[in-house]
């Protein structure tokens, strides 16, 4: 794997990311049209022009930034070919495959119009636009799973294993949960088998993600007063620090404050410092925001890691994702005339 060339290309892509001063300019734009004009001066110009044919206003921006994200991620996939690196990169990007498959299954269950389902696709993973269109064309949930199995997609396995339970209960949660846990557990098992630095970097990020997901699950379940034993099955395995028993103990405290106490001696102790009014109001999105910020910060800080490793593509993927989210936040807030203070609060600042 020629990291020198690939990472040089990715660093060049990184240089086209919007710098904080440009984001500041976007925040200060008075309306959506001036925001589009400003964005047209950036790397988003091409996608904005294409999207402008069919869409206008906020939809134009959202479609353009989504397509740009897909284009950048797919170009990274074409740069990295062969070996563990390709597999590791596929792990990161296949979260979009999981999201797309879940959307298709949800849509098929309620017999949604295929064009409506297709609109929700983000083909940034292994499944490209053609593959997703073919999946959307299938008549029902069973046919979608069969087609995934025919293509040899690993995600067909958890779906086939849980399909009977789904047909018995009619509950899509069964298939969705199977897919989500399979994604993380399969990813962890793949990086565990490798001794390389790349595997270590990716494992570190994945474990942080698993921890964050599990902490969020605990906090959300406490807020909704769900029986701890019922929530147990929704914990993702793979983290050495937060195993199922520790998470269950956190849940059994029955209060947000109680659960937060267990985070004091961990890398996630920063969320214990969340203002007490959010704790009292059990506003989980405030905790989620801090946890996501931590994850994004950690992933983007990989730019400072080994320049000849997977750290650079990982950092770029997260940096790009954050940028797209921030542009969307600014655009949405401009459309609805949200005060600047609230807009700044909603941004993912790293």
């Amino acid at each position: 794997m020629e990291y020198a060339y690939v990472n040089a290309r990715i660093r060049a892509m990184k240089s086209r990311l919007l710098d904080p001063s440009l984001l500041e300019q976007l925040i200060n734009k008075p309306d959506i049209d001036s925001l589009i004009t400003e964005l047209e001066k950036t790397a988003y110009r091409e996608e904005l022009e294409k999207a402008g044919v069919l869409y206008s206003g906020i939809n134009r921006i959202e479609v353009a930034i989504r397509k740009d994200l897909v284009k950048r991620f797919r170009s990274i996939l074409t740069l990295i070919k062969g070996g563990d690196t390709e597999a590791f990169l596929a792990i990161i990007l296949s979260r979009w495959d999981v999201q797309n498959i879940k959307t298709i299954l949800r849509g098929k269950k309620i017999q949604e119009n295929p064009s409506e389902i297709l609109e929700c696709m983000i083909p940034a993973g292994e499944l490209d636009e053609a593959a997703l269109t073919e999946l959307v064309k299938q008549p029902d949930v069973k046919a979608v799973i069969d087609l995934l199995a025919t293509w040899g997609m690993v995600y067909a396995r958890p779906l086939i294993l849980n399909f009977k339970e789904f047909t018995d209960t009619g509950d899509m949660l069964v298939l969705e949960y199977a897919l989500d846990t399979f994604y993380y557990e399969d990813a962890i098992s793949k990086v565990k088998t490798s001794e390389s630095d790349d595997a270590r970097v990716l494992k570190n990020i994945l474990i942080t993600e698993i921890d964050i997901n599990n902490i969020k699950t605990v906090l959300r379940a406490i807020r909704d007063r769900i029986d701890p034993d019922e929530v147990k099955r929704y914990f993702v395995k793979g983290s050495p620090e937060f195993d199922a028993n520790k998470l269950l103990t956190m849940m059994k405290t029955g209060t947000i404050e109680g659960a937060l106490k267990y985070l004091e001696q961990t890398p996630y102790q920063f969320i214990t410092k969340i203002p007490p009014e959010y704790i009292a109001a059990e506003k989980i999105s405030a905790f989620e925001k801090e946890l996501e910020r931590y994850l994004v910060k950690k992933a983007i800080s990989q730019f400072l890691g080994d320049p000849l490793s997977i750290a650079i593509p990982i950092a770029y993927i997260w940096a790009k994702y954050t940028e797209v989210t921030n542009i969307r936040v600014i655009a949405r807030c401009k459309v609805t005339e949200v005060p600047e203070k609230d807009l700044r609060e909603a941004l993912i600042s790293v």
Binding site: V98, L173, E176, N213, R220, R223, I284, S285, E288
Partner: peptide, 19 residues
């Protein structure tokens, strides 16, 4: 509805959507 009754996996949907 409670978190588990909405029909989607809690792992793939943020608490902002829940709220």
């Amino acid at each position: 509805k409670s978190l588990l009754d909405r029909g989607y996996s809690i792992l793939g949907v943020s608490s902002r959507i829940d709220e």
